[in-house]
Design a protein around this nucleic acid. Structure first.
Length: 557
DNA sequence: TTGCAGTCAATATC
DNA sequence: GATATTGACTGCAA
């Protein structure tokens, strides 16, 4: 029944979960004659290229995986050709070739659906998108992403930044033209790239696009042209509007007030952007340090005390956790680039950035993140953290009240939160008992800590957090998440390298223009890594204790 | 439901 | 004017 269903209604690759992809990988292997009789352990291969789940077995021709030009070479998955099923390595090769040659835009198909040949090029269909990247066939970007070997996201962004600045090209232009992203996103991406292995398929897309762009010998010229055209258009518009003095917006022809779509654009229905006051942020950070995953009740209290909407508080926590995590990723990359450098070729490990300390980074999260964990500080003996925060506000007091928790919690970013104690009950109750994961340790030592910021808001927030902390002494209830995270971590932590990459045909690597210098990493930070490792061990140990669990947790680091 | 990844887009800052 | 920051939103997975 499952097979029937799968054959008749295959989901697009991008919509499949790892598990869901397994059957398709097996089928593809089977088609390629690479699957023996036994049950093939597909693990580890699930990161494989995008397979045209809908194609291979049924109607390859309708899969638009082959461009109208019918480029003979497309991914193996597309090759329905029973007679010539390309092996994955072959497909990779062809892919590479395609990628390397300047060509027509790669179609971007959201949903993993191949764009209809008839579909007009992104231009109008995709508001934000487009991408004029090179790619010979209509291979979807997703395919390229999936086929891509591990990319050195850091190196890529570094090179992109260089090219952009060297040629005086703006992020906005680059983002909108090449990546289909807005300026803000581009800025963020270039400044804080996540390591390849931490990215989802979607998240890898921009990096693949960047890599392809970098590989395009005419990349700069093309962008320059765009720039010129834009300028021209701008001048034209300006000119016409000036001469027409009377803005021609009434009819507002082309522009669709889509968003508001209100007949009266005047009425600004837009809600003003919320801007948190420094004190509010401070208070939230303190609360975060007490409890990175506040319960609804706590959130409610915080919102009340800070006079904010609960959704704002929730969003703030989400964003903060997420951004801190990213900061840590960078840190990880930097640290990792040294550690495993030699061993693995993980390009992502290679860091172009000599020693860009993440501290400098924007995310104030860093601050908090660094606070308690200071990883290394660590050991700095737990107390250190507590001591740090003894600035004085009530918040500090609260923090002091639950020093243990603060220190023992693993860095959220690392997702090293306490493992699920077997069965986490994600209910309110459990929530309260969630581990008070302390904010991630500050990479740079204890010096940090939430500075004492005596302010009403903070003071107000503190109590809630404190109370929460108090009630959350129980074992972690993060459950599944933790386990999962742990696992995730295991692969991530060691290094930013991905074994998968190693398995991939080297040709692909060259295709994507992977920097060969990957090996050149300095081991300057080894000590730091060691420290981190030690800290992690310590955290694990303490977590285990805290959770009063006898048995070793299933997660590993 | 909850948390997260990825983005957008308004603002702030340079 | 370009870039950085950040609150909010969407979609997805567990």
């Amino acid at each position: 029944g499952s097979v029937s269903d799968m054959l008749s209604r295959p989901k697009p690759w991008s919509k499949l979960t790892q598990k869901g992809r397994e059957p398709f990988i097996r089928m593809q292997l089977w088609l390629n004659g690479e699957l023996g009789q036994g049950v093939l352990p597909v693990q580890g291969q699930q990161q494989g290229p995008v397979l045209h789940s809908m194609t291979s077995l049924q109607d390859p021709l309708q899969q638009g995986c082959v461009s109208s030009e019918s480029t003979p070479k497309t991914s193996a998955s597309c090759s329905p050709a029973p007679e010539s099923p390309m092996s994955s390595s072959e497909s990779v090769k062809s892919l590479t070739e395609l990628v390397q040659q300047p060509c027509p835009p790669i179609e971007t198909s959201k949903d993993g659906k191949p764009a209809e040949p008839s579909d007009p090029p992104a231009s109008d269909s995709q508001p934000t998108t487009p991408l004029p990247l090179s790619g010979h066939s209509a291979l979807s970007i997703q395919e390229l992403v999936a086929m891509s070997p591990e990319l050195d996201t850091y190196g890529i962004t570094k090179r992109v930044k260089e090219v952009l600045t060297d040629n005086n090209l703006g992020q906005r232009l680059f983002g909108e033209t090449i990546l289909g992203l807005t300026q803000g996103s581009v800025s963020d991406l270039l400044a804080r790239p996540k390591p390849w292995h931490k990215l989802s398929l979607k998240g890898r897309e921009p990096f693949v696009r960047m890599q392809l762009w970098l590989n395009d010998p005419n990349n700069v010229e093309k962008l320059m042209d765009m720039k010129r055209m834009e300028k021209k258009a701008y001048m034209k518009r300006r000119h016409s509007s000036v001469s027409d003095s009377q803005p021609c917006e009434p009819p507002s022809a082309g522009i669709d007030y889509s968003q508001g779509a209100s007949p009266q654009p005047q009425h600004q229905l837009k809600k003003p952007r919320v801007v948190l006051a420094p004190e509010e942020k401070e208070a939230l950070k303190r609360a975060y340090q007490q409890k990175p995953y506040p319960s609804p009740k706590t959130i409610e209290e915080l919102a009340t005390q800070l006079n904010l909407k609960t959704s704002t508080v929730i969003n703030w926590f989400h964003n903060y956790r997420s951004r801190i995590r990213r900061e840590l990723f960078i840190e990880e990359i930097q640290a990792g680039s040294q550690g495993q450098a030699g061993a693995s070729d993980s390009p992502s490990a290679r860091s172009g950035r000599a020693a860009p300390s993440s501290e400098g980074d924007s995310c104030d999260g860093v601050e908090a993140a660094e606070g308690p964990g200071a990883a290394d500080a660590e050991e700095s003996g737990g107390p250190a953290a507590a001591a740090k925060s003894q600035g004085g506000g009530p918040a500090e007091a609260a923090a002091a009240a639950a020093p243990e928790e603060r220190e023992e919690a693993p860095r959220p970013a690392e997702k090293a939160e306490p493992p699920p104690s077997g069965t986490p009950a994600p209910d309110a109750a459990t929530d309260e008992s969630r581990p008070q994961a302390p904010p991630p340790p500050p990479p740079e030592g204890p010096a940090e800590g939430p500075g004492p910021v005596p302010n009403p808001a903070a003071a107000a927030a503190a109590p809630a957090a404190g109370e929460d902390a108090a009630t959350s002494a129980a074992p972690p209830g993060e459950g599944p998440c933790r386990a999962r995270d742990g696992a995730d971590r295991s692969s991530a932590l060691p290094s930013t390298s991905a074994p998968a990459a190693a398995r991939r045909p080297s040709s692909l690597q060259s295709l994507f223009g992977l920097p060969e210098a990957a090996g050149a990493r300095d081991s300057r930070d080894n000590p730091l890594r060691k420290k981190k490792a030690a800290n992690l061990n310590s955290i694990i140990h303490r977590l285990e204790k805290a959770a009063s669990r006898e048995e070793p947790i299933e997660w590993e680091f």
